[in-house]
Design a protein around this nucleic acid. Sequence first.
DNA 1: TGCTCTATTGCAAGGTCTTGCAGTAGCGAT
DNA 2: ATCGCTACTGCAAGACCTTGCAATAGAGCA
Lengths: 152, 152
Amino acid sequence: MSQSESLPEPWSGVREQLHERGMRWTPQRRTVIEVLAASSGHVTSAELIERCRALDAQTIPSTVYRTLDALEQLGLVRHGHGADGREEFHVGPDAEHGHLYCADCGARSEIRAAEADAIVTAFRAADGFEVDLSHVTVVGRCATCAARHVAG
Amino acid sequence: MSQSESLPEPWSGVREQLHERGMRWTPQRRTVIEVLAASSGHVTSAELIERCRALDAQTIPSTVYRTLDALEQLGLVRHGHGADGREEFHVGPDAEHGHLYCADCGARSEIRAAEADAIVTAFRAADGFEVDLSHVTVVGRCATCAARHVAG
DNA sequence: TGCTCTATTGCAAGGTCTTGCAGTAGCGAT
DNA sequence: ATCGCTACTGCAAGACCTTGCAATAGAGCA
């Protein structure tokens, strides 16, 4: 009863969502979810683990990874790989977007709808391939660095 | 003088290319290059290391990684990240292509020129961003699996 | 409340990849 | 042929991530 379900959307119903799938609500999962609820945008696994440890010093990395897998099955987070290939999580229900990474200056930005459409459409038309955008990081050179490179 | 430079193109001139950059020709590098010369398409770091060990049991992983970095500076190989984020190398001078990976059946294929152009053009037009295609692995569902998913 | 079933946890081991450092050995010059 | 400079190697430590297994503890039910 002292179930202070103080979690903000879209997390308030996680417990029920887990139960519907025969999964369990545990203190460890609660810790991970609290961290996710306080995060926005992208987070690397390492950051997540570190923040969990701040809430609960006993946090075990493998448990965090497995919890994230579980949450991904519920569609509450999505994982992708950053420019260096390390895992990275997108938080939130509308986390469907890819990333751009400038190999020169390290700038990161999100792929916008127009470009996203261009990609999805190109592959669908040619191969019937359905792209999972959220999983993609496109590497290259941003406008500024590309210009400097040509000029210099 | 018994320099049996029996390496096939584009490897025959590596030694000179290294020297031009103030880099050195060592037995370890020769081993890595022999392995690369005998490879085609894509290879993971792990495969590369294993094959090097077959030629020279003393092979040290970190040396292989560093050699690959050096060769990448010469433009002889390019690295990218597979669907699981692990490193993967493209061998050859025309290694400029990305990959498609089906998350359902695991099928892999290369991104063809038409789609590649669509991507490059979309980003250039919108942001002035110059995409490095060889570094990209696009994850999603191939035509077959997408159809099965809709039908099932 | 107490019991059973089994999803999860904690741990340990293993694979991948990076980094710093001291010693080694290419390579150009003498 | 020898010497000096410094790029490279080998090693060790460490970060990141996965997997198998025995023990633990949620959840529903009597």
